[in-house]
Design a protein around this nucleic acid. Structure first.
Length: 465
RNA sequence: GGCGCGGUAGCCAAGUGGUAAGGCGAGGGUCUGCAAAAUCCUUAUACAUCGGUUCGAAUCCGAUCCGCGCCUCCA
């Protein structure tokens, strides 16, 4: 079956056909580096990573661009409050962002352009828009995009202007705009900007929020590319504005497919910095959960469904991963050094179901169902001694292929402290002597160090509790 | 007010016309010196409500109730 995605432009499923055969080009809206990302932000990055990995699974070469927004109202406001330069202030959160995506096993994109490194490109783009007559300069020196000159405005968000409530959110300093929905391409310097300003044909100032994504996507992906993603809250105004200014400037279609992921919720409400109801990845890690467990939790719900975050669901994620780990370890033991043979029928069926599920707009639930079916069948076969080493190796390789797409099946290696190993050896000696009291006491000591002993046919194994 | 999404067993969650995947939890068996872990099996008459279309509806249509999101900070 063909690969299909839900396109926000059409609100329906469409077969994925890249502009350039065999090559998928995608632009994924990245973080505004004024703070540490919360796990709602992380959900978007995990979704984009799954998309990227699935495209690769399907054989596409992927070129992904993720921008770093390091100049906007909030970065300026907070850097000044911190008494730091914009560059120094945002650098620490860029670092935090890369730490987070590493903890979540997110593959690196090909490009991570920062807005402040692309001011000339943005200025050039705004000049083009001005020449084409869709931008105008306001009295204060700011430059705005005129939606009145762009009839297609609203095609992504499908907003009708009559129903729009012009309201409190229209800032007082934007009264120069011809239309309330016009958006800034270039913002003239004002006092609150401090020393953050660049020279431009329109005087000192800084770029508007949306222009960076247009300028940087064009630079790294060309005027037209395949996939643009972000959270649903970016549909309007951010992505709508990107389309308007990009297509007005180039006269060519911008992105073919628009994929948006739904929000992460807490207690039934959207997780957002402005609401103060957020957890950062660090918060979760400090509670003893691993990045892998968080990744599973964020991954296991379809990207277009709201995901209500709870710690009990993280516990469920941990239990599910334990089942995966137990199986892959059994499998490795059964496979030994054997070369991969033919997949057993049940594994072949699971492989087909997994791929069909993922091809259907990344239906992760169907894919995971196939995976767990495979685990159940595989365990039963292992219990019955019905799995040859060659078959076990083939199933092991299947899991490796799946994990290239999921990035969550491989258990990170655990370093067992020498102290624990020493206790384990003494316990084995006690067990050999059938000194159960001593054996149990040693098990308690190991448990006190945070490790769990499991006696298997091949000897004891310890895992972190 | 405009636009849109969703309500499936104890919890999470697939499934867009033919009588309901999967995960967690729970119960039982196996394994074990005992455990733990694991594994196998079982589990529950689960499709918000009311109408309609149809031989047949979780699935299509209408209405209602409830929850959530967007409407220029937002992933």
């Amino acid at each position: 079956m063909s690969l299909r995605f839900h396109n926000t432009l059409s609100r329906g499923l469409e077969e994925f056909v890249p502009l350039e055969p065999g090559h998928a080009r995608m632009y994924t809206c990245g973080p505004t580096v004024y703070n540490v990302a919360h796990i709602g932000n992380c959900r978007a990055y995990v979704f984009e990573d799954l998309l990227r990995r699935w495209l690769q699974f399907k054989g596409y070469r992927v070129t992904q661009v993720m921008n770093l927004t390091d100049v906007d109202d909030k970065t300026i406001r907070d850097s000044r409050a911190a008494g730091m330069s914009l560059l120094d202030f945002t650098a620490q959160f860029k670092q935090a962002f890369f730490d987070d995506i590493r903890a979540l096993n997110i593959e690196a994109a090909e490009y991570y352009p920062a807005a402040t490194d692309h001011i000339p490109e943005m200025i050039e783009l705004i000049k083009v828009l001005e020449e084409k007559g869709v931008a105008y300069r306001a009295a204060d020196g700011s430059v705005y995009f005129s939606i009145a000159k762009w009839p297609e405005y609203g095609k992504l968000a499908r907003l009708n202007r009559e129903g729009m409530r012009p309201g409190a959110r229209v800032a007082a300093d934007e009264y120069e705009k011809e239309n309330v929905a016009d958006f800034a391409l270039w913002k003239a310097w004002d006092e609150q900007d401090g020393d953050v300003a660049w020279d431009s044909p329109w005087g000192r100032g800084r770029p508007g929020w949306h222009i960076e994504c247009s300028a940087m996507s064009m630079k790294y992906l060309g005027p037209s590319f395949d996939i643009h993603t972000g959270g649903v809250d970016n549909i309007f105004p951010h992505h709508e504005d990107e389309i308007a200014q990009s297509e007005a400037a180039t006269g060519q279609p911008f992105a073919t497919y628009w994929l948006h992921c739904a929000h992460l919720m807490v207690d039934g409400q959207k997780m957002a910095k402005s609401r103060g109801n957020f957890f950062t990845l660090r918060d979760i890690l400090e509670r003893g959960y691993t990045g892998r467990e968080v990744r599973y939790e964020l991954l296991a719900t379809h990207y277009r469904s709201a995901l209500n975050f709870t710690f009990s669901s993280l516990d469920a994620a941990r239990a599910a991963l334990r089942r995966v780990d137990e199986f892959t370890e059994r499998l490795a033991g059964a496979a030994g050094d054997a070369a991969a043979g033919v997949l057993p029928a049940w594994a072949g069926e699971a492989a087909a179901a997994f791929e069909a599920g993922m091809d259907d707009d990344l239906n992760i639930s169907a894919a995971l169902a196939a995976l767990f079916d495979c685990i159940r069948e595989g365990n039963a076969a292992l219990d019955g001694g019905q799995l040859t080493a060659e078959e076990a190796a083939a199933v092991r390789d299947l899991f490796a292929r799946w994990d290239a797409a999921l990035g969550v099946l491989t258990k990170p290696a655990e370093e067992v402290p020498a102290e624990v190993n020493a206790l384990l050896e003494r316990r084995q000696a006690a067990r050999a002597a059938k000194d159960w009291a001593q054996s149990d006491a040693l098990r308690d000591e190991i448990a006190a160090l945070g490790w769990m002993v499991k006696d298997t046919a091949k000897g004891p194994v310890v895992t972190r509790a």
